[in-house]
Design a protein around this nucleic acid. Structure first.
Lengths: 380, 380
DNA sequence: GACACTAAGTTCAGAAAATGAACAAATCAA
DNA sequence: TTGATTTGTTCATTTTCTGAACTTAGTGTC
């Protein structure tokens, strides 16, 4: 259905999806078209059910009518391969989750494709509308994905090397499928549906067992020359520090990831199984806990400060699954950012913290499909 | 003249300027146009003197004729405000320097504008062709420039704050003028004329008294949200290290800039006035010299490695005015990059070293004008 | 060297898309 | 109620692009 749109129609969809609801006149200006041309294109898209009229804005003169994407003109499935069982969601064009299922995780791409295909009818059961307008499947995974969003170049977690997962799923299910790295998927979902809608340049730092990061630059996801942009976890933060599983030493990952924090705690004899536990110990004055959180927070803050210095983003979004950022750890991170950023720019880059639930990855995955529907793969 | 081009014509110019000479058929494919449309557009541009036919490529079937920009269809003036006297060059569309002058440097934008305007006739004297087709003036300076490439937001060297230099020069001279930060100007000139023509993502690190850096991302100069992208010089590289003039501590600038290296050498009692001197001392076994170069090289290498980790560029271009990269310093830099980059990616990012002469900044400045002529200011 | 074969580039009628100008519609302000 | 103002529509006209047939300039083969 998306392929049936003319290039002007696609442009219009793109503008609305990045700028939100707009009047016909505003869009005409943004696209450099005449009001006459806009009028026609808008009507076509309304007739196709892609756009619909929303609020009326009153000012001087005839009020303008904002057009927005019809949230139910397309539906998407998102699957996260980061947990077992793998969460699976059905979302509309606004990123709203409509249905939720889970499927067993596997390392065999064929098994995954089959599991997805078999789970689809159940996921879509109560939603005949979505069944008909299902426009794409997105998959989030830990690893590197190439720029076609079709091949997984490498994944340690899944033990993959050049697996054309999207193609396999596409063949089994018959539905347009795209895969993406976990952090990059979250960045896309924040850009489409979240707090970054109007920000052209921002970076997402996702804090969990590992540390992920993704950049949006000039309104586009930036994946780098080998798909490795955002590999902040393996920035050297303590030269000559502890060996990392990547082969080098002193990576941020060895200091500030939840996994690292917990391991160091255990090594120091703390009986803690979660960040909250350690935070609690620290608040009661446990020197080891304080030291650990301080070290982890300073390292993460320094890495983020360096990121700000290098790329000058308009926002840093830190997402975390575990614990909270109100304790010592969060305080130290913020402090470290402040002290390591050019004083001239200190406080200029908003740092937003977002506690995310178990749906993030699946929602991110769905947003990859949505992005391909709205913006297209090559962003031309 | 540029404003007279239709949007298709501009697109074509843009494609050629980024991809080099192409046949009509190739361009038709790249722009998604029919051969018929291309034929017409190409003829128009040839008639206008913007394009010309170059080599003929023989294959199966009728040979294709590559079209390229006519190097003499536009000329540009570039001025560097980094030295006194300020170098001033005249270049063609290939970046070839045709004439060279110098003018006295001033901190008063009006005086600069007058000096440029007065120097122009002399610069253009022997080149009536260039006089007629002069299409823009570019100015490179040390400091922050806004995204319109018209205002200098801040310059420590020139002691400026929000100076609309481009507008002033434009008014005096009557010629389209754009200004740019020094490192960013060099990056643009490398993209247009240098070794980065076909690379979409790369970073330039310019090593001189200070350390500058600029990123090209997805084929575009990336300036960041506040124009501060590439401020690698003030990444914290030695936490808690020596105080920097920026107000914080341990910045790369305090360790690896030529100024810092020389200052530390002097403080350590070495009688050295240039990098070559220190390199020479090191090669004769002077422990202090070795230590200084090692520290500076490791720091710069680490910063570049972090840059590679974060942005995964397709190339790093290190430009340096002074000394050479064949000695200890260069070796240590390369080593530090290797050891601090994910082993998986080690050696994957080409590091090119370029010794630049006194023309770099003025040539970079001219390329800013050329870029605005070829690609346009907003890159739509 | 004649012949088919291939692919580049051109031509031109016709289709598609965008424009400009006039106009209808919906509100505010007085 | 009237005028001002701005949105959005309509339609004839212009601009731009396409498709298909054609010309051109080579290669490869016998």
């Amino acid at each position: 259905m998306n392929a049936l749109l003319t290039s002007s129609q696609r442009q219009l969809v793109r503008v609305i999806s990045t700028s939100g609801p707009l009047s016909r006149t505003e869009m005409a200006q943004m696209l450099g078209l005449s009001k006459a041309a806009m009028s026609g294109i808008a009507r076509e898209l309304i007739d196709l059910g892609v756009l619909h009229e929303t609020e009326t804005v009153y000012g001087q003169g005839r009020p303008s009518v904002r057009l927005d994407l019809h949230p139910e003109c397309a539906f998407f499935v998102g699957i996260s391969l980061l947990e077992d069982p793998a969460p699976m969601i059905l979302s509309d064009l606004n990123g709203r989750i409509i249905a939720r299922r889970a499927m067993p995780l596997s390392r065999d791409p064929n098994v995954i494709a089959d599991a997805i295909t078999e789970s689809l009818p159940d996921l879509l059961k109560a939603h005949p509308d979505a069944k008909e307008k299902l426009s794409g499947i997105g998959v989030a995974l830990s690893g590197f994905v190439d720029e076609t969003q079709s091949n997984c170049v490498q994944s340690t977690l899944l033990n993959w090397q050049d697996v054309p997962l999207a193609r396999i799923i596409r063949e089994r299910s018959g539905i347009d499928t795209f895969i993406e790295n976990d952090a990059k998927a979250v960045a896309v979902s924040e850009k489409l549906f979240g707090s970054a809608r109007e920000i052209q340049n921002f970076s997402v730092v996702s804090l969990g067992d590992g540390i992920g990061c993704a950049h949006f630059i000039d309104g586009k996801l930036y994946r780098g020359n080998h798909g490795g942009a955002g590999e902040i976890a393996h920035c050297t933060i303590e030269p000559g520090g502890a060996p990392c599983r990547c082969g080098k030493r002193g990576c941020l990952d060895t200091v500030s990831s939840m996994k690292a924090i917990k391991e160091v705690s255990r090594a120091e004899g703390l009986e803690c199984t979660s960040l909250s536990d350690i935070e609690h110990e620290a608040s009661t004055g446990n020197a080891a806990a304080i030291r650990i959180l301080h070290r982890a927070g300073s390292a993460l803050g320094l890495a983020i400060a360096n990121l700000i210095q290098m790329n000058d983003p308009g926002m840093i979004l830190i997402t975390h699954v575990e614990g909270s950022f109100d304790g010592l750890f969060g305080t130290v991170v913020n402090q470290a950012i402040e002290t390591n950023v050019l004083p001239r720019y200190a406080g200029q880059t908003p740092i937003r913290i977002k506690r995310v639930d178990g749906d993030v990855w699946a929602r991110g995955a769905a947003s990859i499909a949505a992005h391909n529907f709205l913006i297209g793969p090559n962003s031309n």
